[in-house]
Simulated scan of single mutants.
Amino acid sequence: MGIEKARAHLKSWNRDHEILEYAASSATVELAARALDVEEARIAKSLTFKRGDQAVLIVTAGDVRIDNRKYKELFGSKAKMLRPDEVREMIGHEVGGVCPFGINEDVEVYLDTSLRRFDTVFPACGSSNSAIELSCTELEEIAGSRGWVEISRLI
């Protein structure tokens, strides 16, 4: 389900043929980095939050976490991650394959500046064993990002 939604979205950008699929799981940053043979920081992890009745998806580098103080300053509320059942319902993908492609229309997508230190990054593509390599500019455009935010800190 998720990969097909992501594939359809990427097809509209003529990028669906670039999806990388693996026999091994890439559901976590560590597993994805191992499957792709890249450093963990280059894995573009999608974190999902609930803000009121809305879902927010923030894509960060694999070696950072959300800084709660910065999140609250930007969004005006405490960072509250979605539960797995909420992720499926509010985002449109299962945990382990969450990505900014083929998501529900009302989801706000932001990119964290932690990604900008890389020429290319690897976001998932809707399943626990897929990814695509994109530049940050391509990710911003294809994901329909509302912009860049600086709300992370190194783990």
Rank of each mutant, 00 (worst) to 15 (best):
E39C: 06
V95P: 12
H93Y: 05
R117W: 01
E89V: 06
R65H: 15
L74N: 14
A143C: 02
R69I: 09
D119E: 14
L139C: 05
I132G: 08
Q54G: 10
V56L: 15
E89P: 00
G62W: 04
I91T: 11
E4M: 12
L20P: 11
V56A: 05
R69Q: 13
R88W: 09
V87M: 13
M90K: 12
L10A: 07
I103R: 03
E150S: 07
I151M: 09
K50Y: 02
A131N: 04
A33N: 05
F122Q: 00
F118W: 06
A35F: 06
S46N: 00
L154Q: 13
K50S: 10
S135N: 03
A79E: 06
E4K: 13
H93V: 08
A79S: 11
P100D: 07
W13R: 12
I103Y: 03
F75H: 05
R88G: 07
I155E: 08
D67E: 11
V59A: 01
Y110K: 10
A124E: 04
D37P: 04
D106S: 09
G126S: 13
S25Q: 09
S130K: 14
C99L: 04
R34Y: 10
S114V: 09
E138A: 13
S145K: 10
Y110N: 05
E40C: 10
L111E: 02
W148K: 03
L154V: 12
I66D: 00
E18Q: 14
L139I: 10
V149E: 07
R153K: 12
N14E: 15
D67N: 10
S152G: 05
L31N: 04
I43C: 01
L47A: 04
A124C: 04
L74Q: 15
S128V: 03
G96H: 10
G102R: 05
D63Y: 11
L154D: 13
S77T: 15
D67G: 03
S77L: 08
